[in-house]
Amino acid sequence: MSRTSALSSFVESAPPGELADVTKAIKSILGDDAVESELSPAYQKYNEEQLSTAKLPGGTSEVLVSPYNSLGDGRYYDVESSSSFAFDHATGKASDVRSYVLEGALEDTVKSLVKSLTTHASEHYPKSSTGVFPIEDDSQIAILTVANKYSPSNYWNGRWRSHYTYTPSSGKISGAIKVDVHYYEDGNVRLITNKDISTTVGANASSAEVVRQIATAEKKYQEDLNKAFASLSEGAFKQLRRQLPITRQKIEWEKISGYRLGQDIGGGGRAR
């Protein structure tokens, strides 16, 4: 494996919200601050796959970066703000905002979906960003949601991504939900899940119905995850350690080295 391929694999596997930390570590190890130009393709792949977000200069909401709204040459567009922007994949900054008016056969459907999806995301996901873009020569529509929650001071970061392809003529909706959570206090635990979704609505269904079907699928997946976590907590996690008796007595920590674990903590005599 070449150096570039090896370094790119680190970038592409960076946990949510930690791309800058990975880049900093690579620079520190190599002693090369100019490595970003070498990794430019990896940064672009990571940002587009992870549905990275950026605030437009002077804006308050965050816009998406994805393969579906790419205009080429590092530029992307946003339907809701009717603008296009340049995006620096290494720094994650947007700049050079210009007017961009969406046109095409699906223009009205896309704008209607934007409103319905924005409402759904704001009600169910904190700090979420959405995007709706015509694809495949205006025969299909990409529907995207990303919700990030970062808490590096508590050693965890997480990201929810969902992307669907909607075909108005047939009413078919297909896509996937992806969850990526990294917890790294005194350890390194990462949860990565992927759930394929396939459902249908009536041909040329309303935007509200399309988003309602998506919301139903996402709610069910969240409930399934909650059940899996509860089962894991009560099952596998408990088996990782031996259960100790509950005596409701305080441990005398200054004498901890003298305890005989089973007998003394269980209420028996002290070691002599």
Rank of each mutant, 00 (worst) to 15 (best):
Thr91His: 01
Tyr221Phe: 11
Val110Asp: 00
Gly262Pro: 03
Leu106Cys: 04
Ile214Gln: 02
Asp32Met: 10
Val201Trp: 04
Met1Gln: 04
Thr119Trp: 03
Ile135Arg: 11
Val79Leu: 13
Ser207Glu: 07
Val101Asp: 13
Gln222Thr: 06
Thr23Cys: 10
Phe85Met: 02
Leu102Phe: 07
Gln222Val: 04
Ser174Gly: 09
Ile143Glu: 02
Ala147Lys: 01
Met1Trp: 06
Gln243Gly: 08
Tyr125Val: 05
Gly131His: 06
Ala94Pro: 00
Lys111Gly: 03
Val22Gln: 03
Thr130Cys: 12
Lys238Glu: 11
Ala228Gly: 02
Pro126Asn: 14
Phe10Ala: 09
Ala25Gly: 07
Asn154Met: 11
Tyr46Leu: 11
Ser95Ala: 11
Val210Thr: 07
Ser112Val: 06
Ser122Ala: 15
Gly17His: 04
Asp32Asn: 15
Ala121Met: 09
Arg161Gln: 10
Lys149Glu: 14
Ala6Met: 11
Gly31Cys: 08
Tyr68Gln: 04
Glu252Ser: 11
Tyr166His: 08
Ala34Cys: 09
Lys220Asn: 10
Val79Ile: 15
Ser129Ala: 14
Lys45Gln: 07
Val201Gly: 05
Gly59Asn: 04
Ser207Gly: 15
Tyr76Lys: 01
Leu113Val: 05
Gly158Glu: 11
Asn157Ala: 06
Gln222Leu: 12
Ser95Leu: 06
Pro16Tyr: 07
Leu7Cys: 02
Ser174Met: 10
Ala208Glu: 15
Pro41His: 08
Ser129Arg: 02
Leu30Glu: 14
Leu64Tyr: 01
Thr4Gly: 05
Ala14Lys: 04
Tyr150Cys: 00
Glu62Cys: 01
Lys27Pro: 04
Lys220Asp: 13
Pro134Trp: 02
Asp73Ser: 13
Lys178Pro: 00
Lys127Pro: 01
Ala215Phe: 03
Ser174Asp: 12
Asn69Lys: 03
Leu51Ile: 02
Glu136Lys: 15
Ser52Pro: 01
Asp186Ser: 12
Asp108Ile: 09
Val63Lys: 00
Tyr221Ser: 10
Ser5Phe: 11
Pro245Cys: 07
Tyr125Ala: 05
Gln222Phe: 06
Val11Ser: 05
Pro126Ile: 09
Gly175Thr: 04
Gln213Cys: 10
Lys250Arg: 14
Ser206His: 08
Gly72Leu: 01
Leu51Thr: 01
Gly269Ser: 14
Thr167Pro: 04
Lys149Gln: 15
Glu18Phe: 01
Arg272His: 14
Arg190Tyr: 10
Phe229Thr: 01
Gly171Val: 08
Val101Ser: 12
Ala230Glu: 12
Ile265Met: 11
Thr165Phe: 10
Arg270Ser: 14
Pro57Asp: 05
Ile197Cys: 08
Arg270Cys: 05
Ala121Cys: 08
Ser257Glu: 13
Ile214Cys: 01
Leu225Met: 09
Ser95Arg: 07
Lys45Val: 03
Glu107Ser: 05
Ala205Thr: 08
Leu39Cys: 01
Tyr150Met: 11
Pro15Trp: 00
Ser13Ala: 14
Asp78Asn: 08
Arg260Pro: 04
Lys115Trp: 01
Thr60Cys: 02
Ile246Thr: 06
Leu261Tyr: 13
Asn204Gln: 13
Arg75Val: 04
Thr60His: 06
Ala54Lys: 00
Val11Leu: 13
Ala14Cys: 13
Tyr43Glu: 01
Arg270Tyr: 09
Phe133Thr: 08
Thr23Tyr: 03
Gln239Lys: 14
Arg260Val: 13
Ala142Phe: 00
Asp138Tyr: 07
